[in-house]
Design a protein around this nucleic acid. Structure first.
Length: 498
RNA sequence: GGCGCCAUAGUGCAACGGUUAGCACGGCAGGCUUUCAAUCUGCAAAUCCGGGUUCGAUUCCCGGUGGCGCUACCA
């Protein structure tokens, strides 16, 4: 039953991605959005966006724009929305009141429990054991559930603040169908009477998510597996609201290298951090889609058309995946090498501008030169950020000599004298192209009785500052005679001082 | 603690009762080269443990162990 509603066009199929603006778009959220999008596009359904901003305390409206931008960066487009739950509060309130009136919910006058927070759970072992002995019942039944009608009315009349809790059946089981995890079932006795509407009048997630999914006609709820355990509560709500149950598809979580939930401790966890670092969106998307899904064979490099064509929840894994930065970089290299130069150039331009290295002539007359240089550099580039950093010497005369490169290639005492002669030879060369540069250098090597590699490697460090760089003679041509000669002479003191 | 979910090399995925358990990243070792973070070749590396079912289990069932999730008037 894990393949329901895929493979055929279904205009009634509706899915949504519903981030909450309490932070930046997380890589886990990005993958959930991606799966939603692929599923919708595959089936010809509708994909909509909903901002779940009902937590006034933690909500940060200014983050919404960034989330939308990150989704767009990934190539994820939505058909409807974004809708904001903060603009739909009346709806949730009505639903809660309706459930209250019908007896499916009841007012709870208890004070809100104080949430300990994640750190509060990491208590000492002694405290842990102590708690184990006096472990509370699986289900804490609030006494408000059994309040006599008269007392309830009295408290209401006194305007005592209250939250609205759902009255969970005391017996029976609640089940639902999940396209990834299969049929799920849990005893109602395991579900506590959860809050629908806070005493502040704002809805909890459990309420707003169901009310909106019903109102928006969501047919497939695709979200992280961290919601799996809470789904029975929502199933109960669908029933109480008289709504048709959607199909669920919970996708496994993305973990850090230590197999704990991905968090700030693991370094970059937001999509924005990867755009900043210079990853290509198609590479990031390709990496992401393979975390928990596979096309069914060993293919790994997939463009979005292939992903859409092949995607299905039947082939989504139930196992949490570890985010592997090294493999992400490998994907980036793959895409970086294949990207048409016309598409690569704007990215490089943005990087250079950001680094303050951009020169306007590269937008005009020297555009071909820039294209040539970028093509020369790209076989060794891993990230877009490599252009202004690792390849800085190609765009600026202001660069330094990498220490490892100096140690490796500037350790021959004859070098200063040799390079001085090389500079002179290059200055006197009849032409300035690959072959004449090579001839000047090799002839010098032969005349002086040293291997060409000694001169080549030392010169490379002198003119670009790095041990790893494009082939020397092409580099010389691109930089130009004057610059090359100047840089060689400028490096002489530094070489001699080693 | 309770409940739920999951379990193939270090990592991501294949193998959906029968393969010498496959691919990729990473690692290691070589080749090539003018440097290598390019490229080519090779190598090491896995079915969590224990019971079943079966002619045959990575695959199905049960138990254990481990990991993760939920257990908020967060989402």
């Amino acid at each position: 039953m894990r393949d329901s509603a895929n493979s055929m066009t279904n205009e009634k199929l509706r899915v949504r991605f519903a981030p909450s603006p309490t932070g930046y778009l997380h890589v886990g959220g990005a993958r959930t959005a991606l799966f939603n999008w692929l599923f919708a596009r595959h089936a010809g359904g509708t994909f909509l966006l909903r901002i779940e901003d009902t937590d006034v305390e933690r909500n940060r409206p200014e983050l919404v724009e960034g989330i939308l931008a990150d989704l767009a960066w990934l190539g994820i487009t939505w058909d409807e929305g974004p809708f904001f739950q903060s603009e739909r509060l009346a709806l949730y309130r009505e639903a809660a009141e309706r459930l209250l009136a019908g007896g499916a919910a009841y007012p709870c006058f208890c004070a809100p429990a104080q949430y300990a927070g994640p750190e509060g759970q990491e208590e000492s072992e002694a405290a842990d054991e102590k708690e184990a002995k006096t472990a509370p019942a699986a289900r804490q039944v609030c006494s408000c559930r059994h309040l006599a009608a008269a007392e309830r009315e009295a408290r209401l009349r006194e305007n005592q603040p209250y939250a609205i809790r759902f009255r969970v059946p005391e017996s029976g089981v609640t089940g639902f169908s999940d396209d990834v995890f299969g049929e799920q079932e849990v005893a109602n006795s395991e579900i506590e009477d959860f809050v629908l509407l806070r005493s502040s009048g704002l809805p909890t997630y459990q309420l707003s998510v169901v009310v909106d999914d019903v109102a928006m006609g969501i047919t497939h709820v695709v979200r992280g597996a961290d919601h799996l355990s809470n789904t029975p509560k929502q199933v109960l709500l669908y029933g109480a609201l008289g709504a048709t149950l959607p199909v669920f598809a919970h996708v496994p979580l993305i973990l850090g290298p230590d197999r704990t939930r991905l968090s700030k401790r693991h370094g970059a966890t937001s999509v924005g951090a990867y755009t900043q670092e210079g990853f290509l969106p198609e590479a990031f998307r390709n990496f992401l889609v393979l975390l928990g899904w596979s096309p069914g064979n060993d293919a790994e490099l997939l463009d979005s058309e292939e992903m859409i064509r092949l995607f299905s929840f039947a082939s989504v894994s139930r196992t949490n995946a570890v985010f592997d930065r090294a493999k992400l970089e490998w994907f980036n290299v793959q895409y970086l090498q294949k990207l048409p130069i016309d598409r690569l150039l704007p990215y490089v331009e943005a990087e250079l501008r950001r680094a303050g290295l951009w020169r306007e002539e590269w937008a005009g007359a020297e555009r071909p030169w820039l294209a040539h240089v970028v093509d020369l550099l790209r076989p060794r580039a891993r990230l877009l950020g490599d252009f202004p950093t690792w390849a800085r010497a190609f765009f600026s005369d202001d660069f330094d000599y990498e220490e490892a490169a100096r140690a490796k290639f500037w350790n021959d005492a004859r070098l200063p004298a040799l390079l001085e002669k090389l500079a002179a030879a290059l200055e006197a060369a009849s032409a300035w192209d690959h072959d004449s540069c090579e001839r000047a250098l090799r002839d010098l090597g032969a005349a002086e009785g040293v291997k060409a590699a000694l001169l080549i490697n030392a010169t490379r460090v002198a003119i670009v500052g790095r041990a790893v760089a494009p082939p020397l003679f092409e580099t010389m041509v691109v930089l130009g005679r004057e610059r090359v000669v100047t840089r060689i002479r400028r490096a002489l003191p530094a070489i001699g001082s080693r």
